[in-house]
Nucleic acid binder design. Structure first.
Lengths: 216, 216
DNA sequence: CGAAGAATTCATCACAGTTGAACAACTACG
DNA sequence: CGTAGTTGTTCAACTGTGATGAATTCTTCG
C-alpha cells in the first residue's frame, strides 16, 4: 500500500515504448490524428504524457513511427509490376481494393493518406514514393512515346478510386464489389495504358504528334 | 419612421463581419485550417478574437461561412450536364482543370477538399453534393443498366484527377497541360460512360483475363 | 433624455503539446 | 559494499489554442 505518490520509475514494467506504439497505432487509425491527445493516450497506456515525448520526440514523431510500422506499399507494387503487363489494370484494381478493404492494411493506409493531405511534408513523401515505385517503372514498361503521361494518368485513375471509395466514401463506389469495380474501371484503365491516342474525335490543332514540353 | 428591422448600433467602422470574412478567406486558403488561429486572425483584422466567435459561433462556423462564400460547384455541374452527352467527358475534364487551375476558384476548392478529408461532417456534405448534383443526374442521362456504376466510376476518375494533380501534386499529372490531360484521360472516360460492359470477359478469376482484344 | 440593444472588449477557463528539473531504479565499477 | 552514472518515469510549469460570460461602449428608438 503506498499512500505516497510513488514517484520514479516503475520497476518491472515490460517494454513501455512498444506498448505506447501499439496503443497509438490502434487509436490513430480509429480516431485520426487530431482525435488522439497525448494525455489521453498516456492515460490509456498508464503512463505520463511526457514519456511519449521522451521516446518519440513529439506527437508527429509518434505518428511517423506508427506509419513506419504500418505501411509498406513498395513490395506490393513491385509484385504488381512483375506480372504480365496486359493484365495489369485488372490486377492493379483487384489488389488495391483487396488491400484497402482489409482493415489491418486499409486503416493504416487511410490514416496515412489523411495525414498526407493535412501535412505537406508527408504529401511529398507519398508523392516521391508513388513516383519512384510506380510511375517511373510503369512508364518504362509500356515504353511508348507518351508513356509518362499514360502512367501518370493511370495512377490518377487508381488514386481516384482510393479517394472516392475510401476517403470520401462516395456512393455507389463505396459499396460496389471488387468485381463490379474491375468490370467498370478495368476497360478505362486498359485504354489509358495501351490504346494509341487517336485524335479522331477532335483534331484540336494537334500541331505535333503527341509532343509536349515534356523533355522525357 | 417605422419599425426598422435593424436596431441597435450600426457599425461605426465599415462592416466588420465582412472584413473578418474577407481576411479569413484569404488566410484559410493560403495557410489551411490549422495554420490560421483565431487570435492571429483577430490581430490581422484589428479586432478582439471573441468578436469572431460572436459573429460566427466558432472557428468551424467561420470556416463554413468562408466555404459557403467561396465554393459554388452546383451551377458549373449543371451547365456541364446540359450539353451534349457525347462530348461530356472532354468537356468535364476541360472545365474541371480550368476551374482548379485558376487560383480564385481553385484555392477555395482545394481548401474545401482538404477540410473534408480531415472532418467527417464536411466529407458527408461533399459526398451528398456529388451525389445529388452529379452522379444521380449523370446516371439518369446515360440510362443503361449499370448506369449508376458507370456514373460513379466516372466521378471516381475525375476525383482522382483532383486528388493526384491538385492535392498531392504528383508528377507528371501536376504539370501536364489541359490538352494533354484531355488527350490521355478523355478516351478512358468515354469508355467508362458509353462502351457496353464486357459481356464475354471472364467475370472474375484469379489471374484476371488473359489478354484479349479491346472491347469492341 | 433615457432605455434598449447590438457591437466590442476583457478576463478567464479548460485543454493542447512541449520542456526542464527532480527523482527512482538499475548498472558498472572501485 | 559503496558510489557514481545512465536510463526510465513523473511532476510542475510554460505557452498557445478555442471558447465563454461579464462588463463596457456606442447607436438608435421611443
Amino acid at each position: 500500500m503506498n499512500s505516497s505518490p510513488r514517484r520514479g520509475r516503475r520497476p518491472g514494467s515490460p517494454d513501455v515504448r512498444a506498448q505506447i506504439l501499439a496503443v497509438a497505432r490502434d487509436r490513430f487509425h480509429r480516431e485520426g490524428y487530431d482525435g488522439v491527445t497525448m494525455r489521453s493516450l498516456a492515460v490509456d497506456v498508464g503512463v505520463d504524457a511526457a514519456l511519449i515525448s521522451y521516446y518519440f520526440g513529439s506527437k508527429r514523431g509518434l505518428f511517423a513511427a506508427v506509419l513506419e510500422i504500418s505501411v509498406h506499399p513498395a513490395d506490393i507494387l513491385a509484385k504488381l509490376l512483375e506480372g504480365d503487363l496486359e493484365t495489369l489494370p485488372q490486377r492493379a484494381v483487384r489488389t488495391l481494393v483487396t488491400v484497402w478493404d482489409q482493415p489491418e492494411t486499409g486503416l493504416p493506409l487511410l490514416s496515412a493518406v489523411r495525414a498526407a493531405v493535412a501535412d505537406p511534408e508527408l504529401a511529398a513523401l507519398i508523392r516521391r514514393g508513388l513516383h519512384r515505385e510506380l510511375i517511373d517503372q510503369l512508364a518504362d514498361r509500356i515504353g511508348c512515346a507518351d508513356a509518362r503521361h499514360r502512367a501518370g494518368t493511370f495512377v490518377g485513375q487508381i488514386g481516384g478510386l482510393v479517394f472516392t471509395r475510401y476517403v470520401l466514401a462516395v456512393e455507389p463506389l463505396a459499396s460496389m464489389t471488387v468485381d463490379e469495380i474491375v468490370r467498370t474501371l478495368g476497360p478505362a484503365l486498359r485504354i489509358t495504358l495501351f490504346v494509341p491516342a487517336v485524335p479522331a474525335r477532335r483534331p484540336h490543332a494537334a500541331g505535333g504528334p503527341a509532343r509536349g514540353p515534356a523533355p522525357r
